[in-house]
C-alpha cells in the first residue's frame, strides 16, 4: 500500500515519494541490470540512467498501479540499449583473445552467449520467470502482452536456448 501511495505522489511530481519508491526497488533493479550486463559498473550505470528517465517521464503516468511495471520496462530497455552499444563497440575493437576463459564456467558462458543473441522479448520473459520468479500473469503485466503471448515467448526462448547450446550457437535474428 505504501508503494502505491509513493507511486501516486511520484506521478504528481513528488520527488521525495519518487525517491522512496526507487529506494524500495533499487536492489531488485540493480539485480536485473546485472543479469543482463554481468558487470557491477555497467549495472550501476544503467540503474542511474533508468532512474533519470523515470523521473523525467513519471508525470505522464496516469495510473500509479502501473508504475513498477513501467519502471522495469525502462530498465530492461536501458539494458538492451547498453548491450547493443557493447556489441557495436565489440565489432569495432575486437581483438583475438587467447587463453582467457579456462577458469570460467563454460555452461554459463554458453547461456550468456545465447541470451545475448536472443530477441530481447524472449530474454525479458525468461529473466522475469527464472530470475525474478514471476508468474505468467505478472510477466504479462510488465511486458504489456497477453498471457498466451508470454507463454509462447518463454517456450520459444527455452527452445532457442536448447537448440543453440546443442548446436554450439550461431543464428541470426531480425
Amino acid at each position: 500500500m505504501q508503494e502505491r501511495q509513493w507511486a501516486a505522489d511520484a506521478c504528481k511530481g513528488d520527488e521525495i515519494a519518487f525517491h522512496e519508491l526507487i529506494n524500495s526497488q533499487k536492489r531488485k533493479l540493480y539485480g536485473i541490470a546485472y543479469s543482463y550486463l554481468r558487470n557491477e559498473a555497467d549495472a550501476l550505470e544503467v540503474l542511474q540512467e533508468t532512474v533519470c528517465r523515470a523521473w523525467m517521464k513519471c508525470g505522464k503516468l496516469k495510473d500509479p498501479d502501473t508504475f513498477i511495471p513501467w519502471l522495469y520496462r525502462i530498465l530492461m530497455n536501458c539494458c538492451v540499449d547498453e548491450l547493443r552499444r557493447r556489441r557495436r563497440v565489440d565489432v569495432i575493437s575486437q581483438e583475438p583473445q587467447q587463453g582467457t576463459i579456462e577458469m570460467v564456467d563454460v555452461n554459463k558462458l554458453d547461456i550468456e552467449r545465447v541470451l545475448n543473441r536472443m530477441k530481447p522479448k524472449y530474454r525479458h520473459a525468461l529473466m522475469l520467470k527464472y530470475y525474478q520468479d514471476m508468474t505468467v500473469p505478472e510477466i504479462a503485466r510488465i511486458l504489456e502482452k497477453p498471457e498466451g503471448t508470454i507463454k509462447t515467448w518463454i517456450h520459444q526462448g527455452l527452445k532457442q536456448l536448447r537448440g543453440q547450446i546443442e548446436q554450439g550457437g550461431g543464428w541470426d535474428h531480425e
Binding site: E15, F18, H19, I22, N23, K26, R27, Y30, E40, L44, E45, L47, Q48, E49, T50, V51, C52, R53, A54, W55, M56, G59
Partner: peptide, 17 residues
C-alpha cells in the same frame, strides 16, 4: 553504491525535465 546511482539519476532527471 546503489544510493549514489539513484541520487545521480534523480539529479540528471531533474536537470533534463
Amino acid at each position: 553504491l546503489l544510493d549514489k546511482a539513484v541520487v545521480q539519476g534523480i539529479q540528471m532527471g531533474s536537470r533534463k525535465r
